[in-house]
Design a protein around this nucleic acid. Structure first.
Lengths: 208, 208
DNA sequence: TGCAATTAGTTAATTAATTGACAAATAAAT
DNA sequence: ATTTATTTGTCAATTAATTAACTAATTGCA
């Protein structure tokens, strides 16, 4: 099942399936065909069937898919049955925003926040106290942190990443506008490059 | 030049070229070959040449590319010589974070912030006062706003989008975890679905 | 000046991703 | 119970994206 030949294109569609299936569940819909799903999600029915079949035959001919089962299966594929411990590094506006997002409901438990700014240190966001960056390594090892969200400035990000990797973080969710250089290929790095997104918008706007 | 047969894959690489060229410029490097660029940016040299050639022949055989010229050309392609007026709708943590990002330096001038929360209304972020959401339509028309950043909750996002479109906004940068339904095909919608990004990270983490 | 090295632009080949088509299984209707 | 509708899983066809190969231009050095 956890076949690593699955293409990135497919993987990046999985959260969207998960999102739409959650909505269907909430509406009390318990059965859906690839054709119906295609109409609400905007992928072709063929693509939906192809995508899902990468992970197993979750449907039934003549019936379609059971919404709850499929939702759970995709949750499983995405690893949402696991619980991960996380920290936020850089507790400025963005870091605080992420703290308030409460990804904990999806299994990402926030265990700490760190910053260098004395004005922020000591502040509490949702019961999490912002601590001095000097305490980063110790706490990460202590609390066995899996994922770090980097919300520092561009200039601080690489150094922070190096420290994180050194103390055994498994994944980095990077919001700094830089491509981190990480030697260890086993460390997962997922970037959210806001400026890239905005410039893409700008590209399309220009032609209007 | 503004050929709209350019593939999305190419377009989404443009901001990354722009970012790396800026870095080269800052380092005082004024000449680069596709091969050298490929080594720092991580695309193949062939892909770099293909990508750039979608927009014109910016290089010179035997020489490579002039960094400053190429940087400017890509800036032009991305529409960064234009100035756009923007507003933030939803002035919670994320909205405030975006206000502080200061995208104004890239030509995206923040002209207003709006929220329904009385505790936020009146507050000033970087000289921009958060105003009552009721004033949204009027100000958008008044100030001829081009782009709105939607930073509201999932539940409020669609209604906000409808109102924005009605008063002539040209593009929406959407941070709410929902796919907005916009009738008018000319309206640009660029999504930043944080949860999708985090779930993708989770997918890869699960297999480790 | 002439020659080897470099390098873009471009075409061709390859690989990847998406869409289409259809058999087999199931559900629903009569 | 039989027939007709659906609808998946899968394979084939198509389209898109990436990589490789090559030509011609330019550079830089002897």
């Amino acid at each position: 099942m956890s076949n690593n030949r699955i293409s990135m294109a497919v993987i990046r569609r999985l959260p969207k399936y998960h999102r739409y299936l959650r909505e269907l569940l909430d509406k009390g819909i318990n059965r859906i065909s690839s054709k119906e799903l295609s109409e609400i999600i905007g992928f072709t029915a063929s693509q939906i069937r192809q995508d899902l079949n990468n992970f197993g035959g979750f449907g039934q001919q003549g019936y379609g898919y059971n919404v709850e089962d499929l939702y759970n299966e995709i949750g499983l594929i995405l690893g949402l049955t696991n619980t991960y411990s996380t920290v936020i590094v850089g507790a400025g506006n963005l870091g605080q925003a992420l703290a308030n997002y409460n990804f904990g409901t999806h299994g990402f438990k926030l265990e700490g926040m760190f910053d260098v700014n004395p004005k922020l240190i000591g502040l509490k966001i949702r019961d999490i106290e912002i601590k001095d960056m000097d305490l980063l390594q110790g706490e990460i090892k202590n609390k066995n942190i899996d994922i770090a969200y980097i919300c520092t400035s561009k200039d601080a990000a690489q150094e922070v990443a190096d420290r994180l990797v050194k103390c055994g973080v498994k994944a980095i969710w990077n919001f700094a506008p830089i491509d981190l250089k990480i030697e260890d290929e086993n460390i997962i790095v997922e970037n959210v490059h806001l400026i890239d997104s905005l410039l893409t918008l700008s590209y399309f706007l220009k032609d209007q």
